[in-house]
Amino acid sequence: MSRKSVRHTVEKVSRGLPELNTCITINENRGSSALSKLFENRIWKIGQVAEYTGYSIGTLYNLTSQDLIPHRKKRGKLFFKPLEIENWFEEGDI
């Protein structure tokens, strides 16, 4: 690749960066508002954990049955603490 074509490519990418940054910011803001609403709850049910992690509900049931994810079980229902799930998810133990 010649210097001229490299310079042209760099200029082309540079011109597109402001637009790209705007798209990224918009998507981050959408995601952060959904996450902040999710973290308003002190206790999550399995559907909320699925929403946060991106895992299917079936996968989450498998993880809880193997005690691979922090959870509580009361009268046959599963409950999760958001901060425990966040820490577990960031550790990447799976």
Rank of each mutant, 00 (worst) to 15 (best):
V13L: 07
R15T: 10
G16I: 00
L17M: 12
E19R: 11
E19S: 14
E19Q: 15
L20F: 14
N21E: 11
N21Y: 15
N21T: 11
N21K: 14
T22A: 13
T22R: 12
C23F: 13
C23Y: 13
I24W: 12
I24M: 07
T25Q: 10
I26S: 01
I26P: 00
N27T: 06
E28P: 02
E28D: 08
E28V: 06
E28I: 07
N29Q: 11
N29G: 07
N29T: 04
N29L: 10
N29R: 08
R30Y: 14
R30G: 13
S32T: 15
S32Q: 15
S32R: 13
S33T: 09
S33H: 09
S33E: 07
A34P: 05
A34F: 13
L35I: 09
L35Y: 12
L35W: 12
L35N: 14
S36I: 09
K37N: 13
K37A: 10
L38Q: 15
F39M: 11
F39E: 13
F39I: 08
E40N: 07
E40L: 07
N41W: 15
R42G: 14
K45L: 13
I46L: 04
G47P: 00
G47D: 07
Q48W: 03
Q48G: 05
Q48I: 03
V49F: 04
A50H: 01
E51M: 09
E51F: 08
T53S: 05
T53K: 01
G54Q: 12
Y55Q: 06
S56H: 07
I57V: 10
I57P: 02
G58A: 09
G58L: 07
G58E: 10
G58P: 11
T59Y: 10
L60R: 02
L60E: 01
N62D: 08
T64Q: 03
T64D: 05
Q66G: 00
Q66Y: 02
D67I: 04
L68H: 06
L68F: 09
P70L: 04
P70V: 00
P70K: 03
H71G: 03
H71T: 00
H71S: 03
H71V: 00
H71R: 03
R72I: 05
R72S: 09
K73F: 03
K73G: 04
K74S: 10
K74I: 09
R75S: 12
R75I: 10
G76K: 01
K77H: 12
L78Q: 02
F79D: 06
F80P: 01
F80H: 03
K81M: 04
L83T: 11
E84F: 02
E84H: 01
E84D: 05
I85E: 00
E86M: 12
